[in-house]
Design a protein around this nucleic acid. Structure first.
Lengths: 252, 252
DNA sequence: GCTTTCCTTTGGTCGGACCAAAATTGCGCA
DNA sequence: TGCGCAATTTTGGTCCGACCAAAGGAAAGC
């Protein structure tokens, strides 16, 4: 009796399609919705393991096949985190999970010609807008946070590994300023996707110092509430970084 | 003899981690990578159906369980499109597929408090930057495309359904101007995610006319190369729309 | 009290089977 | 010869039962 879904599911008000939807639903999809609801309702606590597959079989009266398919689907949606031989861990979805769901495809996009450039250009575009906005609306504590990140960046000049971390952190502060959780998630995604193409970049205290000075320019422009200067400094900074590494993976 | 994986898979040279990675790989993951590669290589043509599961079983010498799991994974990554009882169709991943992969999670985010606002604010932010950029760098044919979309928008004022379409199209042109495929994909995702919250908005030729005039303002500002005016007009337009519909789903 | 060993639990994989809907074949009628 | 409809074969969706190896605990030994 796999019809426990029929009565609950909405008739899906899309009467505009004759050939595509034959009105058939996978049992697994139904299970996914039910478990989704229980996760959203806090029925399965965040961070705790999902019940064993055998339990779910009894609870929902479905075969293990369906349970496994459903759990796999939940994992791909970021609602649970499943390591190979361990119980899947429930994860209340956050904004970063949304971007993380795109990881797989993005990997392919980055691999194809011009992919890295497209994504990097998007980052420049977005970050340029962020610094403009920061120059106009950053609060005093935002600017203080930026200053702290800048100082940490300066202190890390001799240590390239530490410099990379503080560099990322400096930019992260920019994404925090709008107080919209979407932006930090985007920053996380950008760094995760672009980092593999960045680590090849040769680093040295000299280059670190140059980058630090660029960061300093950006900071000062924001502090001085000069949106145009901030944007120019940011774009110059990121474009310079691009020029510096393009040779490492672009030789058409 | 389920050991066909044991000899082939690498002993995973990662002696640097005791608890996290037990050096175990799901057979399905391996299959996913192999099929991924063949899709990327054009071995499976875009738009054509994937081989039947029974064939894949023989080709890769794995059980149907593994094949199904792999196909499901590919589907969740947007590499194949699988309708319930049909052969999965191969889809060479595009930028919109990346965003589409986030659909599931985004649904949850939108459901939670402030989710719609966060996403809509992000849209305003991005689109404001787009019109700035358009005012500065739009080419002649970009502005002509914008004008055509604007005219179509005006012609559709009496028909609210048509107006909605041309409205979306007008904004879409803005995302096309940077010539970066990431932006149209983002626009597609935004409209897909926000549309369900938008259809509730009462529509009328009067409101359509107001919105058309806003679009006209944006167009003129871009044509006149006035970035500030374009941004102001765009933000005013989108904020007004927000105020107009917020009552329909925000009463805390 | 702490390590070591044994048993149980649990996820991963396999093989076979059945169903219903798709896709294909082929027959019969015009 | 051409075409529409029915019989047949494919094919995806689901279920079942079984086995393995690793994780998680429990019991035994130091």
């Amino acid at each position: 009796m796999p019809d426990q879904t029929a009565p609950t599911q909405t008739p899906t008000q899309t009467p505009i399609e004759a050939p595509p939807t034959p009105g058939f639903q996978r049992a697994a999809d139904s299970l996914v919705r039910q478990i989704e609801a229980r996760i959203a309702a806090g029925d399965f606590a965040d961070g705790s393991p999902l019940p064993p597959e055998r339990d779910l079989i009894e609870t929902y009266r479905v075969s293990r096949t369906v349970v496994r398919e459903a759990v796999a689907a939940l994992a791909s949606r970021g609602l649970v985190e499943s390591r190979p031989r361990f119980r899947p861990v429930v994860r209340r979805p956050g904004y970063d999970a949304a971007l993380a769901a795109a990881d797989g495809v993005v990997g392919h996009l980055l691999a194809q010609s011009g992919g890295v450039k497209n994504l990097y250009d998007t980052r420049i575009f977005l970050e340029a807008s962020l610094v403009r906005q920061a120059a106009r609306q950053a609060r005093k504590d935002d600017i203080e946070a930026l200053k702290r990140a800048l100082d940490a960046n300066e202190a890390a000049i001799p240590d390239s590994a530490a410099f990379y971390r503080t560099d990322t952190e400096f930019h992260a502060v920019l994404y925090d300023i709008p107080k919209n959780p979407v932006f930090p998630a985007i920053h996380k995604a950008f760094t995760a996707w672009l980092a593999p193409h960045w680590v090849k970049m040769p680093r040295s205290p000299e280059r670190n110092r140059v980058n630090y000075l660029r960061h300093s320019d950006i900071y000062q422009a924001i502090r001085d509430r000069d949106a145009d200067a901030a944007e120019v400094a940011l774009v110059a900074h990121l474009n310079a970084a691009w020029e510096y590494v393009r040779g490492t993976f672009e030789q058409p």
